[in-house]
Design a protein around this nucleic acid. Structure first.
Lengths: 248, 248
DNA sequence: CGCAGTTTTGATTCATCTCAATTTGTGTGG
DNA sequence: CCACACAAATTGAGATGAATCAAAACTGCG
C-alpha cells in the first residue's frame, strides 16, 4: 500500500473546475491544498479501499480510472459505478464510518487523499466549499437514481446506449474526444454495471456496429452516430411493433 | 399548497433518534428547532415537490409515507424509493438547486420543512449536526447501491423478499410490528421500484403465500417465516436445480 | 511466441413480460 | 345501507428478451 506524499497543488491542477476546489478563491484553494497534500498511486487492479475498511478520507481522482463494486455473501457482485479524473470516491464510507463497497483502479491511477475530519472542519469555515461538497454528494444520489432508471426500465441495448453516451459526455468534459475512446473495463464489468451478462453486452456492441452507430474494436470505441444512439434511448413504441398490413 | 406554520418541537418529537437531531444536546436541538419551525401537511396523492422545482429546503417526515420517482421523456417512470417517518426527503435537489425527482405522499402525511441555507449555516456551527447530516446523505448513497444490487443481480422473488424484509426492519425501528404491516403503495409502484411488472409482483406474493412464507390480503402483509424469506435471498444454487435421478 | 484471459458468435432454455379475462376492493351518491 | 363505477389485484396463456451453455477467435502480456 504505497502512499506517496507529494504536494497536491490543487492550484496547479487542471481538474479544478471538475473537482472539489470549484468556485473557491485562490486563498481558499491554498487552504484546501494543505489539507489534501498527500497523494497515492495505484497500479491497475489494486484496491483503493475495500468493504469494511475504516473510513478516514475521501479521494479525488487525479489521473486514472476506477470502478466501485458491492459484493453479496453468495458471491454475486454489482458494479455500482465507474469513476474518472476529477471525481470523488469514498463518500459511501461516511455513513457507517467504514466503507461499504470496494474501489479498484482499472488502470494505473493517482488520487489525492482528503482526510474527512479536516474537510469537515474546513468546510465549516469556507461556505463555498461546504456548499460544493454537499452538491457533490447530492450529484452522486442523482446519478444513482439514473442508474436505477436504467436498471429498472430499460432494455439491454438502451442500457448500453445510455452507458456509451454517458462516458462520451464525461470524456468531453475532460477535454478528450467525445467520439472516440478507450474502455478501461471488461465486457463483464460493463455487464455487471448494466445488469446484463457479458455475452449480452457483446451482442449489443455487435448490433450497434452492424447498424452503423458505433465502431468497435475490442476496447476501442468510436461513436459514429450519436443521434442514432440517443434515438435508441427514446424508443417511444415497443421495439419494432408489427404493423398490420391491412384491416384484418 | 397548504403550509401550516406549526411549532416543530424536535425536542418533543419521538423520532429524534431516527431524524436529524440524533446525537445533539438539548440546547443544540433547540437551535435546530427554530430552524425547522414550519410544517406542511399533505393529503394522500399530493406532491411534496416535483422535478424541476427550485430547491430550497429538505424535509423530515413527521408522519406518513412517501414515494419518490423519476420520469423519462417517453413516459416510463422509476420509483426510486419509499420513505417513512424520520427519514429525510429532498437531498436530490442540492446538486442542481432544483429537484430531480417527484415526491408524493402515499397517505396523509406531515413533514417538517428545513430551509437548506439555514441548515448549512447551523451545521457549520454545530459539529455533531454537520457530521450527522453528512451521514444521512451518505446513507442514501449506500441505500441506492443496495437497490442497484437488487435491480442488477436478483430475480423477481429475491427482489420482493428483500423489499419485504427491508420494510419490516424499518417498521421495527419505528416501534411497529415487524411481522404485520400495511403496504401503502400499489403493486404497480412496488413493481416500478423493483424493476418488475405489477403482474410479476402479484404472482410472487401469491407464491410466497402458497409457500407459507407470508400471508397476503391485498395490502395487508403478515410475515410468517422471516427466516424463510431470508433464505430466498441467499439462494446459493440457481433456483431449484433439476437434479438428475441417476447417472445419465 | 505461446498461453490465459477476453471477446465474439451460435443454439437453446427460461424468467419475465404482454395481453386478456376475472375477481376483489374502495369510495360515492342515491 | 346498498348499488354502482372505478381502481387494484389476481390468474392464465402465450410471446419474447436475455440468460445459459458451448465453442471458436482474438489479443496482448510475459
Amino acid at each position: 500500500m504505497p502512499i506517496h506524499a507529494l504536494k497536491a497543488a490543487c492550484s496547479q491542477c487542471n481538474l479544478q473546475e471538475l473537482c472539489l476546489p470549484l468556485g473557491l478563491t485562490e486563498g481558499e484553494i491554498q487552504r484546501l491544498e494543505t489539507l489534501a497534500s498527500t497523494r497515492r498511486k495505484l497500479k491497475r487492479g489494486h484496491h483503493l479501499y475495500r468493504t469494511g475498511a475504516p473510513f478516514e478520507a475521501i479521494y479525488a481522482i487525479k489521473t486514472g480510472f476506477f470502478k466501485t463494486d458491492v459484493l453479496m455473501e453468495d458471491g454475486r457482485d454489482q458494479v455500482t459505478g465507474f469513476q474518472m479524473a476529477g471525481e470523488i470516491l469514498g463518500m459511501d464510507g461516511i455513513s457507517l464510518e467504514a466503507h461499504s463497497c470496494n474501489a479498484v483502479a482499472l488502470e494505473d491511477s493517482e488520487v489525492c487523499i482528503i482526510p474527512f475530519a479536516q474537510l469537515e472542519q474546513l468546510s465549516s469555515e469556507i461556505r463555498t466549499l461546504q456548499r460544493h461538497f454537499h452538491k457533490v454528494m447530492s450529484r452522486e444520489i442523482v446519478r444513482d437514481h439514473g442508474v436505477m432508471m436504467l436498471l429498472g426500465t430499460m432494455r439491454a441495448e438502451e442500457r448500453l446506449a445510455a452507458f456509451l453516451l454517458n462516458l462520451s459526455q464525461r470524456f468531453t468534459a475532460r477535454g478528450y474526444s467525445s467520439a472516440e475512446f478507450h474502455l478501461r473495463m471488461t465486457r463483464e464489468e460493463i455487464g455487471s454495471y448494466l445488469g446484463l451478462k457479458l455475452e449480452t453486452v457483446s451482442r449489443a456492441f455487435s448490433h450497434f456496429q452492424d447498424s452503423g452507430l458505433i465502431g468497435v474494436q475490442q476496447k476501442h470505441i468510436r461513436i459514429l452516430d450519436s443521434a442514432g444512439l440517443k434515438a435508441v434511448l427514446s424508443r417511444t413504441s415497443p421495439p419494432v411493433a408489427a404493423i398490420p398490413i391491412a384491416a384484418a
